[in-house]
Design a protein around this nucleic acid. Structure first.
Lengths: 254, 254
DNA sequence: CCATCTTTGTGCACGCGTTCACAAAGACAT
DNA sequence: ATGTCTTTGTGAACGCGTGCACAAAGATGG
């Protein structure tokens, strides 16, 4: 389950389950790749393999959007790209601000996957006066003092927090007060927000800790099983799925 | 449910549910903060609030680890920190390699949350010969040619992929062949790995798309409800929870 | 026009995760 | 020692998500 959602116990927005929404970007990515190769149609089986999910799950996911497939044939790639994009709200422009231009903030500013998905970095904001005016990824960094004005002038509703943990809640409060209603939080802190505001978090440290847990478990199991096989000599039956996805994110402090 | 897991349909490792494992780092973070403030004990209610989860859920989570609380009093902070650290395998050193030292890779290398959690950046690897030898975060970048040797010499079992999407699968294959059994993938691709290897993915683009979906839904609902309230003037009842967490991660290409 | 074959869309059952609600356990005061 | 009060640990119910398995739908060929 994705951590992001903040309130709304488990409501499915407009009939579309949260787990499905979380997979739509995955399908979209696979479909975009097919589209670039000028593939006209795909079966649920093929697309599911490309997205790393179960084909039945994929069909059920699409059924929430409507009946966009043709039995005996499959799905029209272009049409599906459009439908999913529209459903995700990617047919419109989403101005985004990034607050906290440290190593991570700068990396995010330079990230190319924004524009291609309808996201536009409207402004970079940092508390360090020395950063003000300095261009990062071709965009001049602005000072935190102007945060409210920047949000309002650009009609920003999505904010990315890449500040140190200590500053995150304060930045969050100001973003929300200024009108931001969706926040992607990279700071390793639990953010408190009013009802109606969505928060998703990404925490690298948490992801690594989860990996460490399984890694440790593998180690003890191997010791217990005591099959003298070489560590690197894993079973090696070419993997099937990528994983159910509907999982937990990671946190990434500045 | 977290996306990371690759195989093992839904098995609960050693009796501890996956959803619980994903929350342990959250508890650990909150407990560490309490420990630094020299707080001796916490109730499940207090700790749950600090971690942004339901107190019943927290108690059930801890019950999987054993009975570490004292009724009428709460949990001993230091003891719990130790138990969770041990459970997560953080009492040992985990050498980690980062492959792909672009903007993101460099940001990860500079990330301070590694060492404090038992993770040590053992090496930085990049395919660009021009990068070789250049220090990033005080560590000299090494060339991809030496990947296998680096993995073996350092006994690395956890790899971080921060390369462009096109190179990810190839890098992944080499990491796995060299003995890596846990991978944190920032490239926007579905990785195929043999059984026994865990993959977790972090995709920024996906997280933003999920936020956009909810943002769009809010917009249409507001239009439908037609209550002329100002966008920025949200309900404002100081938020309760942070969100159940067990969600879906995001991907972040280089 | 009919038969066959492919692939979708979904009813159904199962299992995990969440939450409630309460009994059991211990601390603390008298 | 006994009673009261607090907080844990968990039994049980509920709901969401997943995956199987199949009927319905349409394409395609004769």
């Amino acid at each position: 389950m994705a951590t992001g959602r903040t309130h709304r116990p488990a409501t499915r927005s407009r009939g579309i389950p949260e787990a499905t929404v979380a997979r739509l970007p995955l399908y979209l990515r696979a479909l975009t790749a097919l589209s670039e190769r000028s593939v006209p149609t795909v079966s649920s089986e093929e697309l599911a393999a490309a997205a790393g999910v179960n084909s039945a799950k994929l069909r059920k996911d699409f059924s929430y959007l409507g009946s966009y497939g043709t039995r005996g044939v499959g799905y029209d790639v272009e049409y599906l790209v459009y439908q999913i994009s529209r459903e995700l709200g990617l047919t419109q422009d989403w101005p985004v601000v990034i607050v906290g231009i440290g190593n991570l903030g700068a990396a995010l500013a330079n990230y190319g996957g924004f524009a291609s998905r309808g996201f536009r970095v409207a402004a970079l904001i940092d508390a360090d006066p020395a950063m003000a005016g300095k261009p990062v990824a071709g965009i001049p960094v602005q000072h935190t003092d102007d945060l409210e004005k920047i949000i309002e002038d650009n009609g920003v509703s999505i904010g990315v927090i890449a500040t140190p943990a200590g500053a995150a809640q304060q930045v969050c409060d100001r973003l929300v007060a200024a009108g931001v209603t969706s926040i992607l939080n990279f700071a390793p802190t639990v953010l408190s927000v009013p009802d109606g505001v969505d928060v998703r978090k990404v925490d690298l440290s948490i992801e690594l800790q989860i990996l460490a847990f399984h890694e440790q478990r593998k180690a003890v199991e191997e010791g217990a099983a005591a099959d003298g096989s070489h560590p690197a000599a894993a079973p090696r039956e070419d993997s099937a799925e990528q994983g159910p996805d509907g999982d937990v994110p990671a946190v990434m402090p500045a």
